[in-house]
Amino acid sequence: MFGLTEEEMNLYRDLAQDFAVMDVTPKIKKDAQFITPVIIQDNEHVPDLVFLRQLLTDLETIITLTTTNMAYEYAYLQCETELSENEIIQRLHNKYEDYLIKNFIKYGIAFTEDVITEIVGEIILELPYLYISVIQDESFDEDEFLENKLAAYNDYLNENFSGLYDDFSEDEEDGEE
């Protein structure tokens, strides 16, 4: 399926899920501010930890499902279509931004627009690496594959994240003087 053996597909799924749980979700949780109900405990208002735990579980579930679905679709688009890498990236970005928004609303998770773009961007940038890490064909040239995709990912970063690090580069220049 998708040019991968059953064993490669299982590994691909596992790697995508591990990436979602171990890399993307913690990064999003670290920077997030959560809105939770409060309960009164020992005459103090404290966050409802049961609600918060469920919220974090729901967040991890959504990110894991998104990553896995994107990874499978990426493999399909690589093997079964003639789309350019730029077209694949744009298609996945648009589709899974909408997918995330719908799921965040479905699960009752408050969010900002930038977190959606950040999640989708993190996943998209990892997809080629996940894909090549499972291909066991000796004739497959991983370096050539990645090099052929590089321009598309540079374009993607410039289009979606160009202003993200502007302040950092200005600080860096100030520090060099």
Rank of each mutant, 00 (worst) to 15 (best):
I116K: 07
D155K: 10
F161Y: 11
Y74F: 14
L4R: 07
Y131V: 12
T36Q: 09
S84V: 15
M70V: 14
M1D: 13
E170W: 03
I35V: 15
N103R: 13
I116A: 13
S169N: 11
T64V: 03
T57P: 07
F2Q: 14
Y76A: 05
F145I: 10
I89T: 05
G175T: 08
E8A: 07
Q33E: 10
T68V: 02
V38E: 10
T117E: 14
I62R: 05
F104D: 01
F161Q: 02
M70K: 14
V24W: 07
Q33I: 14
V120G: 13
L65K: 09
S84F: 12
S139I: 07
E60N: 03
P47D: 12
H45Y: 04
S84I: 14
G175E: 12
L130H: 05
L52F: 02
G3W: 01
D141A: 03
D155R: 02
Y76P: 07
A71E: 14
K102V: 13
E60K: 08
A152W: 14
L127T: 07
T36H: 02
N148G: 13
S139V: 04
Y129I: 08
A16W: 00
Q136T: 05
D31R: 11
P37I: 07
Y74W: 07
E8T: 00
D98S: 12
L127E: 03
A16M: 00
A16G: 08
L164D: 12
D171A: 05
D137W: 06
R13L: 01
T64L: 11
F19Y: 08
Y156I: 03
T64I: 05
I124R: 04
F145K: 09
D114T: 10
T117R: 12
T67L: 00
P128W: 05
T67N: 03
T117F: 01
Q90P: 00
Q33K: 08
L52Y: 02
A32M: 07
V134G: 03
T68N: 10
F51T: 13
D114C: 04
V21K: 06
Q17E: 12
N158P: 02
P37A: 15
K102F: 09
K30L: 11
G121Q: 06
T66Y: 03
K106W: 07
N94A: 09
S139W: 04
V46I: 15
E73P: 02
A16P: 05
L164N: 14
E113F: 05
E142S: 15
Q33Y: 06
I132N: 07
E44F: 10
E80L: 13
L146C: 09
N43G: 01
D31L: 08
E87C: 00
L4Y: 13
E97Y: 14
T66L: 09
L59H: 02
M22L: 09
R91E: 03
D174A: 15
P47G: 08
T117P: 01
N160V: 00
I135V: 11
G175K: 09
Y72V: 05
